[in-house]
Design a protein around this nucleic acid. Structure first.
Length: 484
DNA sequence: TTGTGCGTGGACCAGGTTGT
DNA sequence: ACAACCTGGTCCACGCACAA
């Protein structure tokens, strides 16, 4: 399965409601549908849409059947009929659809009219605020926009309703026993486009589109800094609109501790970016397609750092060592995501000197899937230049903190400075702080961060619109901008 | 005079809201 | 549910100011 494909299963989305509409449903057709669904385990009921408290009448019911559907006819302002599958009934019906045992000719006069999905976010001990406080905060933010919302308490707990029930997109976030449930209700024209995908069994596309819609919709009006939305941030990063920078450095989530030198790790990041644009041949090893890329070692050196001569023996030697290290897999553990780790596993590296020419040629096998991977981060390549030790460490630290899960990025400067084993002068400390600020400016120019920051003083965080070196002696905070 | 750059307003679209 | 209506946002043409 393609890693960039969103499926309900991979995204942990549950189907919670499905309904179909019939512009005109004859009794005979209704009977036929009821019979058909009865055989699949669904009891049929009917209701009148006119009554506020509808009475459920049986059409075809047996105690053997565990599921049910409801026909709603006799509507005000409209003389069609709706067929509702609620909760588990919907998820059962969708299961049958995916197993391709639904005979869609029975439903030929029906159009998909509503589809609900939900995501369940379990409470975690690290959550700083309660679910209720989170909902209150969400509502506070929503009030500043023109979206209408209401926060109510029902017998199960608090529930935040967003949008108009009648509108095409309606959202509810509510408490359950040990989770928050994020529910999205889709209706109308937007949904009707997907009707064909469903009845033609094009589930990959169907689920891809609806999952995408689900994440984007929630992302549009929720403030992502809350821990209850950690799952959403992870989903949105790879599918957001990324302004592609020239020679962007693509990166996945990097661990807060890496077990190698900064220079080697930076070289790996550069190599992953470099390899994207190389010519290749596909070869299969044990059923898995690999890309065999071939390149001159000196070309990679030039890509890595255009300011040094590509014939620099010392630098070439370092790259060769690095390439040989690649196949040992020591780099993998520096990435947080296990799936990504498996993608950057490199089975083989070959170095050879062409007999006629004088340059070294490298052949590297990379998993082909890696090249279709939607990286969560595309960053300016801030390493393509000769860097002093301090500059390099600062730049790497910056990338490392930036490629963390939370959209709030906290830089502890004091801690960073004290990690130096030797005593460092105040002037040097000052320069280090300057390097950090330069990077903040650079990221701001690339529109990768919001323009409000925080500075840390005596352990407290203060909002600010700008800062300079003496404001950040303890540290500072920036916020990643997720444009969707 | 001509070309460039920027700011304004109107057309258009998508989306949500309202009335039946 | 549907159509009519409203709204906010984007895009582009147009025109103005300014420099070459």
């Amino acid at each position: 399965m393609h890693p960039n494909k969103l499926t309900f299963e991979s995204e942990n989305l549950q189907v919670d409601y499905i309904s179909f509409k019939f512009q005109k449903l004859e009794n005979s057709t209704q009977r036929k549908i009821a019979d058909y669904l009865f055989k699949l385990g669904f009891n049929s009921y009917k209701e009148s849409g006119k009554l506020t408290k509808p009475i459920k009448e049986s059409i075809l019911v047996s105690s053997k059947n565990k599921f049910e559907v409801c026909f709603v006819g006799d509507n005000p302002y409209w003389d069609g009929t709706l067929l509702h599958f609620s909760g588990l009934n919907a998820s059962r019906f969708y299961f049958f659809s995916k197993e391709q045992i639904i005979d869609w000719t029975i439903f030929s006069s029906a159009v998909l009219s509503r589809f609900d999905l939900y995501f369940e976010r379990n409470y975690k001990t690290a959550d700083k605020i309660s679910g209720r406080e989170f909902l209150q905060n969400c509502q506070k933010n929503l009030k500043q926009t023109n979206k209408n919302s209401s926060l109510e308490k029902n017998r199960k707990g608090w529930i935040l309703k967003i949008g108009n029930r009648k509108s095409n997109h309606y959202f509810r976030i509510y408490e359950t026993k040990n989770s928050l449930r994020f529910e999205h209700e889709m209706k109308g024209k937007v949904l009707q486009q997907y009707h064909l995908l469903l009845v033609e069994n094009r589930f990959e596309e169907f689920e891809q589109k609806l999952s995408y819609q689900f994440f984007i919709s929630f992302g549009k009006f929720l403030s992502l800094q809350f821990s209850y939305l950690d799952w959403l941030v992870l989903k949105l990063r790879p599918i957001r609109k990324q302004t592609f920078l020239q020679s962007a450095l693509n990166s996945d989530y990097i661990k807060s501790e890496i077990l190698m030198t900064t220079r080697s790790f930076v070289m790996l990041l550069q190599f992953l970016t470099y390899a994207q644009h190389l010519d290749f041949e596909i070869e299969s090893l044990g059923g898995v397609p690999y890309r065999q890329v071939t390149f001159k070692v000196r070309d990679f050196l030039e890509f890595q750092n255009p300011t040094i001569k590509s014939t620099n023996h010392y630098q070439l030697e370092k790259i060769k060592k690095f390439l040989q290290q690649l196949q040992t897999g020591v780099f993998l553990t520096s990435f947080d995501d296990t799936h990504f780790q498996s993608l950057v596993a490199i089975p083989q590296v070959k170095l050879e000197k062409s007999s006629k020419q004088k340059y070294w040629i490298a052949r590297v096998w990379l998993i082909d899937e890696l090249f279709y991977y939607n990286y969560p981060f595309y960053l300016p390549n801030i390493f393509q230049t000769k860097l002093t030790k301090d500059k390099l460490e600062v730049r790497f630290k910056f990338i490392q903190v930036f490629t963390s899960v939370n959209i709030e990025k906290v830089f502890f400067i004091q801690e960073f400075l004290s990690s130096y084993s030797s005593v460092i002068s105040n002037q040097r400390k000052n320069n280090i702080k300057k390097y950090f600020i330069q990077l903040v400016q650079l990221f701001k120019e690339h529109d990768l961060i919001e323009d409000n920051y925080k500075i840390i003083s005596n352990g407290h965080y203060y909002f600010t619109k700008e800062f300079n070196t003496h404001d950040i002696s303890e540290g500072f905070v920036i916020y990643e901008k997720l444009s969707i």
